[in-house]
Design a protein around this nucleic acid. Structure first.
Ligand SMILES: NC(=O)c1ccc[n+]([C@@H]2O[C@H](COP(=O)([O-])OP(=O)(O)OC[C@H]3O[C@@H](n4cnc5c(N)ncnc54)[C@H](O)[C@@H]3O)[C@@H](O)[C@H]2O)c1
Ligand SMILES: NC(=O)c1ccc[n+]([C@@H]2O[C@H](COP(=O)([O-])OP(=O)(O)OC[C@H]3O[C@@H](n4cnc5c(N)ncnc54)[C@H](O)[C@@H]3O)[C@@H](O)[C@H]2O)c1
Lengths: 247, 247
DNA sequence: CCTACTTTGTGCGTACGTTCACAAAAGCCT
DNA sequence: AGGCTTTTGTGAACGTACGCACAAAGTAGG
């Protein structure tokens, strides 16, 4: 999962738990599908199944938003779509800027799924003059020189970083300086940002490594005990590894 | 964060907490950078800073792997790189198949960062005959007809789904039937899989929605309270839609 | 109106994750 | 060798998350 530093001990007063916030989009998606099929109401059991979660969890999550269900009946689909959208801030428009129009930036720029939920690609930016000026998905790639102006004029508040890792921190700093307070980072680096700026990351490599970990477990063999690169080795050492044998 | 269904109550005995597993790749990346710079040892404080976590957490995480540090000194970089790699299963090769070579599949296929950690793109697959046969990154796109054979012959154990959402479950089922037990899903759908198969998802749209939620909070205004679409309302009816006015 | 049934909203026990804080271990210097 | 410094490894306290199970609230039918 791409988990970023959006975490806080959990907000005060009216705060919705972070774990819940992360699931709301899931519910919203399931509800949208129901809505399109013209389904008027849905029970927590059905909705939970569609979202792939436990129904008690779903009910608790929804209860943070308010008491929007009807006992004996379920939830009104349209009404709940609206409430969740509102809570997530999707009733307003969020202009997004994509920085680094290479392989990945290209794919994102061409991606239609963005617009669907109030996220609008407002600008594509790159530092390479061989790239700037190109038109992608009907939009000209602008040069990084124009960053500050673009952010200001288009009220961009979300930046997506798809530059190579070594450039990411620098780009991030510029985005922050330009006034952006939410960043989605695809570069495999830890970004450091001042208080008040949220960073979330999407890291393919980490996801694969987590899968590999479990895959290895499944294949029975414990973490391959093999020739170990000599321990830091003080004086004396135990040479080899644990040597766990699972029967 | 893309969080998938890799969760389990936590393994028995020798089990490493899921949260820890998710951070190991982060430590590994930081350590690799240190290793390249020729740094021989690192303290938990330094490594934690590089990975963007609390040092106590880092030490506890590492302690699950074993007692690999030296008090008063820190951790031997090379040794720790090896231990984490081994634990994650990166000392072996993981052939990966990418299914759905469109915008995103293309970008992934061209991406070099894969190979770096033992993940090898073994096959590119698509259902569209206009796509199959094309060469991408020196590799021919194969047709879905060959899926089972490819999985068998190349020992593919990890599948990456980059098809449109409506096709994802069907593709997933075929992957599972072919023997794949780890799936990374980029399509915005909940996949259902049998016990024993791990699915992790990467969902851009969810990440943006989480950012929007926090962004909205930061902009002061609570979730725009405005004229609400008439509550579900018993009998029939429900008024009209949102009509939010953000002042 | 009253009874039977459905489904929400939530209290509560449990498990999991994070952080503090410190004893114990190791190196270093005299 | 002993004392001083550094830094690990972990016990314990706290906070967050999960899911069961059930009362309360609603619908439906007579
Ligand atoms: N391609 C993938 O499938 C993939 C997958 C996972 C992660 N990533 C990560 O995403 C990032 C982009 O990957 P990619 O394959 O698109 O790389 P790429 O090299 O194709 O594209 C990077 C783009 O960023 C631009 N750039 C470089 N420095 C810049 C700067 N300082 N300011 C603005 N733009 C700058 C370059 O001109 C280039 O157009 C990398 O960090 C990569 O590790 C990519
Ligand atoms: N492009 C992005 O930046 C982006 C971002 C986030 C999520 N996604 C998601 O990733 C997925 C792919 O996006 P995309 O933009 O690459 O779409 P795309 O339409 O460009 O590519 C999809 C590819 O999948 C192939 N395909 C369709 N049905 C198939 C099947 N049954 N078996 C095998 N192959 C099949 C198609 O032939 C096509 O080549 C979508 O689910 C999308 O929502 C894309």
């Amino acid at each position: 999962m791409a988990t970023g530093r959006t975490e806080r001990p959990t907000q005060r007063g009216r705060g919705i738990p972070e774990a819940t916030v992360a699931r709301l989009p899931l519910y919203l998606r399931a509800l949208s599908a129901l809505s399109e099929r013209g389904v008027p109401t849905v029970s927590s059991e059905e909705l939970a199944a569609a979202a792939g979660v436990n129904s008690a969890k779903l009910r608790k999550d929804l209860s943070y938003l308010g008491s929007y269900g009807t006992r004996g009946v379920g939830y009104d689909v349209e009404y709940l779509v609206y409430q969740i959208s509102r809570e997530l801030g999707l009733t307003q428009d969020w202009p997004v800027a994509i920085i680094g129009i290479g392989n990945l930036g290209h794919a994102l720029a061409n991606y239609g799924g963005f617009a669907s939920r109030g996220f609008r690609v407002a600008a594509l930016l790159d530092a390479d003059r061989a790239v700037t000026g190109q038109r992608i998905a009907g939009m000209a790639v602008r040069h990084m020189d124009d960053l500050e102006q673009i952010v200001r004029e288009d009220h961009v508040s979300i930046g997506v970083i798809t530059t190579p890792a070594p450039a990411a921190q620098e780009v991030c700093d510029r985005l922050v300086a330009a006034g952006i307070t939410s960043i989605l980072n695809f570069a495999p680096t830890v970004l450091s940002v001042p208080e008040g700026v949220d960073v979330r990351k999407v890291d393919l490599s980490i996801e694969l490594q987590i899968l590999a970990f479990h895959e290895q477990r499944k294949s029975g063999l414990d973490p391959v005990a093999g020739p170990v690169p000599g321990r830091p080795s003080k004086p004396g050492e135990r040479g080899d590894l644990p040597e766990v044998m699972p029967a």
